[in-house]
Measured scan of single mutants.
Amino acid sequence: ATNIVGKVKWYNSTKNFGFIEQDNGGKDVFVHKSAVDAAGLHSLEEGQDVIFDLEEKQGKAYAVNLRIK
């Protein structure tokens, strides 16, 4: 899925991951530091509006192509 809109539920910059809540009511999506770095960001803030693509690997969904809304 592409261009999914959501809000950062939480992001832990020490542990380098967090979760994004989808605006469409879907399951929360894992986001890793690598996606944050690829977006040219240092971190994510709770409540921040983002747009992302959804990829699945080994049955787990995660956010890629992250951008600030």
Rank of each mutant, 00 (worst) to 15 (best):
E46D: 07
L44D: 01
W10M: 12
V64K: 13
A35C: 04
H32I: 03
A1K: 12
S13N: 15
E56C: 04
N16R: 11
K9W: 02
A35Q: 09
G18S: 01
E56N: 09
K60Q: 11
K9M: 04
G26S: 11
I20K: 00
E45W: 11
Y62W: 15
A38W: 07
L66R: 00
V50I: 10
I20Q: 00
K33V: 09
A63Q: 00
A38K: 14
E56D: 13
D49P: 11
A1Y: 12
I20E: 00
G59Q: 12
K27Y: 15
E46L: 09
F17T: 02
S34D: 08
R67Y: 12
Q48S: 09
T2K: 10
V5G: 11
G6H: 01
I4S: 10
D53S: 04
E21I: 13
H32A: 05
V5L: 11
D23Q: 13
E56T: 11
D23R: 10
A35E: 11
K15C: 04
A39Y: 03
L66M: 06
G40W: 05
F17H: 11
A61M: 12
T14C: 06
R67N: 08
Q58W: 12
L54Q: 09
T14K: 14
L44K: 01
V36N: 02
F17R: 02
G47N: 15
K7P: 02
L44Q: 01
L41A: 07
L54P: 01
V64H: 07
F30I: 04
D53F: 03
V8Q: 01
I4N: 08
E55A: 14
K15E: 05
G18R: 00
F17M: 06
K60A: 11
T2N: 15
V8Y: 01
Y62Q: 15
E56P: 05
L66V: 09
K33S: 10
V29F: 06
G47H: 15
H42K: 12
A1F: 14
N12P: 02
F30A: 02
Q48T: 12
K15A: 13
A61Y: 09
Y11P: 01
E55V: 15
K7M: 06
T14L: 12
A39I: 07
L54R: 15
T14V: 14
F30T: 02
V36E: 01
L66E: 00
N65P: 00
N65C: 04
A38L: 12
A38H: 10
V29Y: 07
A35N: 05
G47R: 09
R67L: 08
V8C: 03
S34C: 04
N12R: 09
E45I: 12
E45T: 11
Q48C: 05
S13D: 10
K57N: 15
Q22T: 14
R67D: 05
S43F: 11
Q22P: 09
L44M: 06
T2S: 09
I51T: 13
L54E: 06
N3Q: 12
G59C: 04
L44F: 14
V29Q: 02
E45G: 14
F30Q: 02
L41G: 09
G25W: 12
K57S: 08
R67V: 07
Q48V: 09
K33P: 02
V50M: 11
